[in-house]
Design a protein around this nucleic acid. Structure first.
Lengths: 118, 118
DNA sequence: CTTTCATATGAGCAATTGTTCATATATTGT
DNA sequence: ACAATATATGAACAATTGCTCATATGAAAG
């Protein structure tokens, strides 16, 4: 918090912004959600599950990836509480476990659609 | 598109979902935004710039990082068109260049606040 | 024009990530 | 009990990432 001397720092502005920042804990949780969606395979998985559940095998087809690769990524998303699963015999069905993820994806679609007018 | 035989695949459901998926191009752009926000330093930078512009030096203080590290990350965010900058003498001020990023962050804060009730 | 200060950049390196391959577990059918 | 099938997991490895350190650029002041 001790903003040092002899530098180009605008202490006033820094202090203002410092107060407005969320606690570290929250920032890290936000990072985790973004990280979950920041890989093409994982994003495709989540996109695939927006409307209906799917089994591992179907998700692998949808993502053009091996069952194993998908299983690894499903574990990541499960651990992050983005997805949940239910077992039906040999088959395991995955579905969304986070109501907010849909909204996040919607926003990112907005970003992409209204492409930059630079 | 040729969904193979002899497998546990539910072709019906896979086809439905396949049609609902955005084109690869769009998915990659979405991934890029999420990637931009999926690092604690970069997210903190963007959070710091939500309300007002800051110079590189101030951002470094706000993020507890070296000027160099911040400069590297600012370049990443500039390249991704998340930030823009303006020069005032020796000092360079950075600010948001993407109206949608604010909304994205808002959504992720929602996610964090209404913490999972599992 | 030389020095100083703010920022940018390149090389290098440790840490992390996403996949493959081999193997394990779980459930069903024979 | 055993084989077959769906999913999960661990080790290994290449690729990517985010930082540091040294150095370069660009602007103001002496």
């Amino acid at each position: 918090m001790d903003i040092c001397k002899e530098k180009c720092i605008n202490e006033e502005k820094v202090h203002q912004t410092l107060e407005s920042l969320p606690p570290v804990e929250e920032i890290n949780q936000m990072v985790d959600i973004f990280k979950a969606l920041s890989d093409p395979t994982r994003l495709k998985i989540v996109l695939s599950l927006l409307e209906q559940e799917h089994c591992v095998c179907d998700i692998a087809v949808l993502c053009n990836q091996s069952d194993s690769a998908i299983s690894h990524q499903l574990r990541v998303l499960r651990t992050m509480k983005v997805l949940k699963n239910r077992r039906a015999g040999k088959i395991v069905y995955y579905s969304l476990d986070d109501e907010h993820v849909g909204a996040l994806i919607e926003m990112s679609l907005n970003h992409v659609d209204h492409a930059h007018s630079h």
